[in-house]
């Protein structure tokens, strides 16, 4: 019983972190799916989302507003607006001018953008860790008084439910809406979609905006969950999310979700049963193994040569 509780606790830890990896991974995978480039500045967009949310929360606190739902909604909206405009601007400034050139050029442009944004936040906000207030406190507990007690914090539940809602809305949006259909068309064949009257530039911008908005949601959630933000915060998370996207099959949205969850659970199980020191080793070995046997990732479709 004790062992089962311990296992479930580690599973929940892993699923929580995994679902936020998935939220960030969507941004990588959508952009890749549509224009075939890796947006390395995406981790920074997520970090900026967390900072914006923190600034909004602090601002509301100084105004004396203490009603939790209002704080959360305002922080979320601010984060989404700022991150999305940032995502849009990054695409306009750094990617659109070099689109269609050799593959390496947009990649380098993306890395440059990532370094620029990181340093911009360094300068604007300082390099220290800034504490994030714990807005959602408390937890459910399971197990007897003696021995191991499993606890699921309200924050973990919030993260889980929010991710679920975001994913569902996104899937519906992609499969049912006009823009979603256009997105799928553009990802299949950009040139043809253009010929058929789809404004591909607008669709590509929309992709960046959607990815950035989801990253902003993840930024707010993780900021609150962990309790601090710093300018390098996006880099590691971005790397992990990118791994998740590749693991699940880059270009595939369900793949990003699956990849994120697998990566999160693998990490928490490794630190739970082996040692925290091997966490990244196991996560990346898993990635290599999967790519060895299934180069397109778990749910990725093999690329068909277009003639």
């Amino acid at each position: 019983m004790q062992d089962l509780l311990y296992f479930s606790q580690q599973l929940i830890n892993g699923l929580t972190i995994g679902s936020t990896y998935a939220l960030i991974a969507i941004g990588y995978t959508m952009v890749y799916g549509i224009i075939g480039m890796i947006n390395f500045a995406h981790g920074e967009i997520y970090m900026i989302g967390a900072y914006t949310a923190l600034i909004a929360i602090t601002g509301l606190a100084t105004l004396g507003i203490a009603w939790l739902p209002l704080i959360l909604i305002v922080a979320l909206l601010c984060a989404i607006i700022v991150s999305s405009s940032m995502g849009w601007a990054v695409e306009r400034v750094a990617y659109r001018p070099v689109r269609g050139r050799h593959r390496l050029i947009p990649l380098i442009s993306a890395i440059g953008m990532s370094i620029f944004l990181q340093n911009y936040v360094h300068l604007a906000q300082g390099s220290r860790n800034i504490g994030f207030p714990a807005l959602i406190d408390g937890s459910f507990r399971f197990g007897s008084g003696e021995g191991f007690q499993m606890s699921i914090s309200y924050m973990q539940i919030t993260i889980f439910i929010t991710t679920l809602i975001c994913m569902t809305v996104l899937s519906l949006f992609i499969s049912r809406s006009r823009i979603g259909r256009a997105c799928r068309a553009v990802s299949q064949d950009l040139g043809m979609a253009n010929l058929l009257g789809i404004d591909t530039n607008r669709i590509i911008s929309a992709t960046f905006v959607i990815g950035a908005a989801l990253a902003a949601v993840a930024g707010l959630l993780l900021g609150m969950y962990y309790g601090s933000v710093d300018p390098l915060f996006g880099f590691i998370a971005g790397l992990k999310a990118f791994t998740a996207a590749v693991l699940g099959g880059i270009g595939s949205i369900p793949g990003a979700m699956l990849g994120g969850l697998i990566l999160g659970v693998a990490e928490s199980m490794t630190s739970g049963y082996l040692s925290g020191e091997y966490k990244d080793v196991v996560a990346f070995s898993l990635l290599i193994l999967i790519l060895l046997f299934k180069p397109t990732g778990l749910l990725g479709k093999p690329e068909v040569e277009k003639i």
Partner: peptide, 14 residues
């Protein structure tokens, strides 16, 4: 050991 710069310590805490 943990990794400096990490944010998620939920597994360690458990």
């Amino acid at each position: 050991g943990i990794t400096a710069g990490d944010k998620d310590f939920s597994s360690l805490v458990t």
